[in-house]
Amino acid sequence: MPTDDQTPSGSRASDSTIGHEVRILSDNMVNGRLIAAARALIGWEQQELAEHAGIKRQTLADMEGDVRKPQARIRQAVLNVLQLHGVRFVEVGGADGLIRSKVSSDDNA
């Protein structure tokens, strides 16, 4: 059985500590609530994430509130920025959530 560092991205891994499978969510499974939580996890306001993704703050607010479905390129820009800052969207035991891998301190800029 492979150890956690040998498990390929996107596959299922068993975590003996919590007793649940951990699965990386596909980008189309990430909802507004998870985007807002990811933004908070890296310590950014909406304006900061919007600027990094090259979109308007209101567009991000609409995404986070699930007010409207963004264009694919906008959604991907937001997810790319979050993932570049170590955020991974996961499902654990049937519940969606997120984790953040270690990043260097200058990655928060």
Rank of each mutant, 00 (worst) to 15 (best):
S11H: 11
A40T: 09
A40M: 12
V87M: 10
N80D: 15
R73T: 13
N31A: 09
D96H: 02
S14T: 01
D5A: 02
G97H: 03
R73C: 09
R88N: 05
K69P: 09
R23N: 03
A36L: 06
Q6L: 00
Q6W: 00
V22R: 00
A77E: 14
D4K: 04
E21K: 02
R100A: 03
R100N: 01
F89Q: 12
E45C: 06
G10E: 11
S16F: 02
I42A: 01
R68F: 13
G43F: 08
V87I: 15
E21M: 02
R88Y: 02
A13S: 04
H20V: 00
G10C: 14
H85C: 11
Q83R: 14
T3H: 04
I99L: 03
T3I: 03
G54R: 04
F89V: 08
D106S: 15
P8L: 07
A72S: 04
P8I: 06
D106H: 13
S14L: 01
L82V: 10
V78S: 08
D66A: 15
I55E: 15
D15W: 00
K69T: 15
A38C: 01
H20S: 00
K69E: 15
N28H: 10
P8N: 06
V81E: 02
A61Q: 15
D96S: 07
R100W: 04
L49Q: 09
V30A: 11
E45R: 13
G10L: 14
S105K: 14
S105H: 12
G86S: 10
D5I: 06
A50T: 06
L41K: 15
Q76G: 07
R33G: 06
V30M: 11
G94V: 07
L84A: 08
I74R: 09
I42R: 07
G43T: 11
S101E: 00
S104F: 10
K102Y: 01
E51H: 09
I24C: 02
V103R: 03
S26V: 11
E21P: 03
H52W: 00
L41W: 00
D106V: 12
H85Q: 11
E45N: 10
K56T: 13
K102T: 06
V103K: 03
R39G: 05
L60Y: 10
I74Y: 06
G32Y: 10
T7M: 08
M29I: 02
T59Y: 08
E51K: 13
G19H: 03
L79H: 05
L25M: 03
S14M: 02
V22S: 04
N80I: 08
R75L: 12
K102I: 05
A77C: 07
R12G: 07
L41H: 10
I35P: 10
G54T: 06
R12D: 09
V30W: 10
R23F: 04
N108C: 05
A50Y: 13
A77F: 14
Q83H: 12
W44Q: 07
V22G: 02
K102P: 01
S104R: 13
I99Q: 05
E91I: 06
Q6E: 08
V87D: 09
A95S: 13
R68P: 08
A77Q: 14
Q83E: 13
G32R: 10
V78D: 08
R23Y: 03
L25R: 01
R12I: 02
D106Q: 13
S26K: 15
E91H: 04
S16V: 03
A72E: 09
I55T: 15
R88F: 00
H52S: 14
I24V: 08
G94P: 12
H85E: 07
A95P: 04
Q6S: 05
S104C: 07
F89K: 10
